[in-house]
């Protein structure tokens, strides 16, 4: 019998040439998005400045109370003036940004790993485990998160950086787990998962090598937007006075000085730089996240 061969692309294909992967598409979309590109550049500049400068700065020096220099306006000694404790604002901004970003990043990482693991398992295997996990998630999502974190911050005897990250992560994994679960649920119904099963691929390999890559773009978008959110939550709690211990410089603490009528009206150098810094940080990360989100949605791609 004659074999019918469909005409293939006639031009020779370079055997090592790779087609664009999902990540490459995301990257390409980012480069095309001017706003996102600008955001990335600002972020890189800002963060490298912050992390490099913070190595040089002496933190003990910065947090030391200097009664002779209370609320000093910007000068040569203090580039951005001092706060009500006579502490250098510029130094606090650098260390505060480093802390906020590092904490936000760590929480995103931890909740990402937990959310991914739980979501993938619940979504892929389904059944009773899925039912129980979903009940827990629905419950945690309803809890008055902010209040409970504040209560924990006051009753945990040694509330430090790690307990803070732990308490935050204990609540914030749920949203991710729910998202990943619903996407996994949809993905596992597709025939390529059935095909892998018939080909003898073990379940853990199907989850990690087959399903996970198909969720990668959603995960990246979610993690980026979450990073911004977590920085916001951290600085917000510090603003209320329930974030990091007082001795640690924090952007939120600087802004909280603005609750004083005199400071907000007359001492802009105390709170405006910190507010601007957080806004820039959050806006840039969000712009990148939104650009990534558009990139995953083929309808909105720039081409």
């Amino acid at each position: 019998m004659m074999r019918l061969i469909e005409p293939l692309n006639t031009q020779p294909v370079n055997s090592e040439e790779k087609s664009p992967s999902a990540l490459a598409i995301l990257g390409r979309e980012l480069v095309k998005d001017k706003l996102a590109m600008a955001s990335i550049i600002i972020l890189i500049l800002l963060l490298s400045t912050v992390y490099i400068t913070s190595l040089v700065l002496n933190q003990d020096q910065i947090v030391k109370i200097d009664l002779l220099e209370i609320n000093a306006p910007p000068s040569e000694d203090h580039l951005l003036g001092t706060d009500q404790g006579g502490r250098d604002i510029f130094g606090q901004l650098i260390i505060g940004t480093r802390n906020s970003f590092s904490i936000g990043f760590l929480i995103t990482l931890i909740t990402g790993i937990i959310g991914l693991t739980v979501g993938l398992i619940a979504g892929y295997f389904g059944g009773i485990a899925d039912n129980i996990i979903m009940r827990i998630i629905d419950f945690v999502l309803v809890l008055p998160f902010l209040m409970i974190v504040i209560v924990c911050a006051t009753i945990v005897p040694k509330f430090n950086l790690w307990t803070f990250i732990f308490v935050m992560s204990a609540f914030l994994w749920t949203g991710k787990a729910r998202l990943i679960r619903s996407k996994t649920l949809a993905e596992r119904e597709l025939d390529y998962v059935s095909a892998s099963k018939t080909l003898g691929t073990p379940n853990w390999k199907i989850i990690l090598r087959e399903v996970l890559p198909n969720l990668s773009s959603i995960i990246i978008v979610n993690l980026t937007l979450n990073l911004a959110g977590n920085i916001g939550i951290e600085s917000g709690l510090s603003f209320l006075g329930f974030g990091l211990p007082e001795s640690t410089p924090s952007l939120g603490t600087l802004i909280s000085y603005a609750q004083d009528a005199d400071t907000i009206q007359n001492k802009w150098w105390v709170w405006v730089p910190a507010s601007v810094l957080i806004l820039v940080l959050m806006l840039c990360i969000n712009f990148v996240g939104q650009a990534l989100k558009r990139a995953t949605d083929a309808r909105q791609r720039k081409g």
Partner: peptide
């Protein structure tokens, strides 16, 4: 082994 109905969903789009 099995041959699936839908040639689109039966091949993982993320794999070469």
């Amino acid at each position: 082994q099995m041959i699936f109905q839908d040639p689109y969903s039966s091949l993982n789009p993320k794999k070469r």
